[in-house]
Amino acid sequence: MKLIETERARMVSFSKRKKTLFQDANKFATQTGTYVGVMLFSPSGKSCSYGSTSIEEIIDKFLKVKQKDRKCDYAEGKSNGFEALEDLHKELQALNEKEKKRILMHKIMHRGSEIPSDKHMEEQKLALKLRVEKIKKEIQSASI
């Protein structure tokens, strides 16, 4: 298997395979009664997701299970990093919801005009990313 050379052919293949993957995920969830979530990023960087329920609920459930697993596997001090990651995930969800509302309001108020970036929102997201990286490093150093 190798990378498809032309960008157009790569995008067509991505689109077809994405559709099939999401159909298979739906079939799996239906037949087994499980929660299924799939997240993809296209070659252009656009995010795509499928969830048998909302993808946010699946991520929350996954993080809770992982946190419980980590509490069993690690000493109490090491699991604090996973709790912090869960808190950051909730903050990011809130920021994303706020951004969606801002974009929707702009579309309603200024039809057809370009949506301006929100520097404050971008700064908050960058700060969250930096905090996540710091916590990841702390978790890695604690598990050594």
Rank of each mutant, 00 (worst) to 15 (best):
K16S: 14
R17H: 11
R17W: 03
K18G: 01
K18N: 03
K18S: 05
K19H: 04
T20H: 13
T20G: 09
F22L: 09
F22Y: 11
F22G: 03
Q23P: 00
D24Q: 13
D24E: 15
D24C: 09
D24V: 01
A25N: 05
A25K: 01
K27Q: 13
K27H: 10
F28D: 06
F28S: 11
A29M: 05
T30L: 14
Q31A: 13
G33N: 11
T34Y: 08
T34P: 00
Y35C: 02
Y35K: 09
G37Y: 02
G37A: 09
G37E: 03
F41A: 10
S42W: 04
S44K: 15
S44M: 14
G45W: 02
G45K: 08
K46D: 10
K46F: 05
S47D: 00
S47F: 00
C48T: 04
S49E: 07
S49G: 00
Y50I: 03
G51F: 07
G51C: 09
S54C: 06
I55V: 12
E56S: 10
E57R: 08
E57S: 13
I59L: 12
D60Y: 02
F62K: 02
F62G: 01
F62A: 08
F62V: 03
F62H: 07
K64M: 12
K64I: 12
V65P: 00
K66E: 09
D69H: 07
D69M: 08
K71Y: 00
K71S: 05
E76W: 08
G77W: 03
K78L: 10
N80D: 11
G81N: 03
G81M: 00
F82W: 10
E83S: 09
E83P: 00
A84C: 06
A84P: 00
L85S: 02
E86Q: 12
L88R: 02
H89Q: 15
H89P: 00
H89E: 13
H89A: 14
H89C: 10
E91F: 03
L92N: 08
Q93H: 07
Q93W: 02
Q93M: 12
A94M: 13
L95M: 13
N96I: 01
E97V: 06
K98Q: 15
K98N: 14
K100D: 14
R102P: 02
L104G: 02
L104N: 12
H106T: 11
H106Y: 15
H106M: 13
H106G: 08
H106E: 13
K107Q: 15
K107P: 03
K107W: 05
M109A: 15
M109P: 00
H110W: 14
R111G: 15
E114M: 11
E114R: 10
P116E: 08
P116L: 07
S117K: 07
K119F: 08
E122T: 10
Q124V: 06
Q124F: 01
Q124N: 12
Q124H: 07
K125N: 07
